[in-house]
Design a protein around this nucleic acid. Structure first.
Lengths: 235, 235
DNA sequence: AGCCAATTAAGTATGACTTTTACATCACAG
DNA sequence: CTGTGATGTAAAAGTCATACTTAATTGGCT
């Protein structure tokens, strides 16, 4: 379990080592890396390293300049919306900060998405929504946090995709990660907030009847609740 | 002006050709590309093509599999938050749809960002804000759209960065692109909506005095106005 | 100060070799 | 005759080593 599985290609393995090192701050901004050294360190050819560098460069994590080397860029310039960067940061040292950033983003996006979903959701999506809301009710008591989480993530994914906005839809994974992170940090025996569960049911209903304003307002209550919860467990 | 400047490296030039072709839909999802064919087509070595493919893969535009080739992935899987993907799509065929998506995203994010800015903005940022709001007032009449745009973009950039949330801050370029796109599509002799100008001044003031609720509400009026404007000029 | 040359590290090209895997072929059992 | 499964082959990406090119930094020389 020391090395990541060798199933993937070489460049993927190198990337999965170097990326997290950078996002975690182990290789601080301004550091200069040389391709030859990296090739030596990972015992791969320079070709492989170059491909990794290209990907890291496309994430704005590094900048490559002739005669000087590969420089780690300052944090503010990183592509923080890249799923892999998000994943690495969530797995790394400043997971709390990252979780907070993402929760704020979620609190901005989800209410608007819910409002749009009320206008655009297909009957099938409405059905899924109520189904998952019911699932949340059913699993909200008695230490079934894992089962609850599955429904919660599915619920929010449907909302985001039913909004009909591709930018919102692509945040489904991020929201899922946030929800997972929150569950993992919660006390194991604490059941979800009953008020939140009720709100989800009401959102599903509002979307079904096409009440955009109500769907938005209710979802805003959910997300502000999530932020308040974050403040309580803040590190 | 036929070819993009040859100042950058080879892989950048190939990327700037292949990327837009994919995002524009000229190379529809499901299409398989072979690396040696691409190498032949662009008259570069396979090494260069491989690096391009890696970057395209990191944008989730393509997937590379052995024995089959490089497959263009379906639109829903693209990394639509990647700045280059956004740029390519804005430059391409479905620019209207993209502009609409981004405007909706903006309408979700900016009000929340403004609320946070009211709580976190430094005195310096408040000064910048009023300065640019004043600039907008000064350039709002008499076909000075370009000068107006500069202040508008700067204003919103300050709001987003002053929010203190890195995810919001990284959307400044996107918002700038949206504002630019809107200006370019407007009739050349139409001055900006006076109501919008007033709202910007009021937002700057609300942020300065730390009235988060008011800053959020005013900004929401700005963004809903922007969306309404989009509906009028909808293609 | 300003210019030129040397040096350094990334960028590119090429060719040989490895690994994975889709596909077709064939054998066998139902 | 058909469907299932084992097997072999070939195609394309993946990897490596090496030689060469290009740009930019550094430092020395005028």
């Amino acid at each position: 379990m020391e090395n990541e599985g060798q199933g993937k290609g070489l460049h993927a393995r190198v990337l999965e080592t170097l990326g997290p090192e950078i996002t975690a701050g182990d290789v601080p901004p301004g550091t200069v890396l040389r391709t030859d050294e990296l090739a030596q360190r990972f015992d791969v050819s320079r070709t492989v390293i170059r491909e990794v560098i290209r990907v890291l460069e496309s994430m704005q994590l590094v900048a490559s300049r002739r005669r000087v080397g590969v420089t780690v860029r300052p944090t503010e310039e990183w592509n923080v919306y890249d799923p892999r960067v998000i994943g690495w940061r969530l797995a790394g040292r400043d997971r709390p900060r990252q979780l907070r950033s993402l929760t704020v983003l979620r609190s901005a996006v989800e209410p608007v998405a819910a409002g749009l979903a009320a206008a655009h959701a297909t009957p099938g999506q409405c059905a899924e929504l109520t189904e998952h809301a019911m699932g949340m009710v059913a699993t909200s008591r008695g230490q079934q946090l894992d089962a609850y989480l599955v429904h919660d993530m599915a619920f929010h994914r449907v909302i985001l995709t039913a909004s009909g906005n591709e930018m919102f839809a692509r945040l489904a994974d991020v929201v899922a990660a946030v929800l997972t992170g929150r569950t993992q940090h919660q006390v194991m025996f604490a059941d979800p907030d009953p008020a939140a569960v009720t709100l989800h049911v009401q959102v599903a209903e509002a979307v079904r009847v096409g009440d955009a304003a109500r769907a938005e307002s209710l979802t805003r209550q959910i997300t502000t609740g999530a932020m308040a919860e974050l403040d309580v467990l803040a590190p």
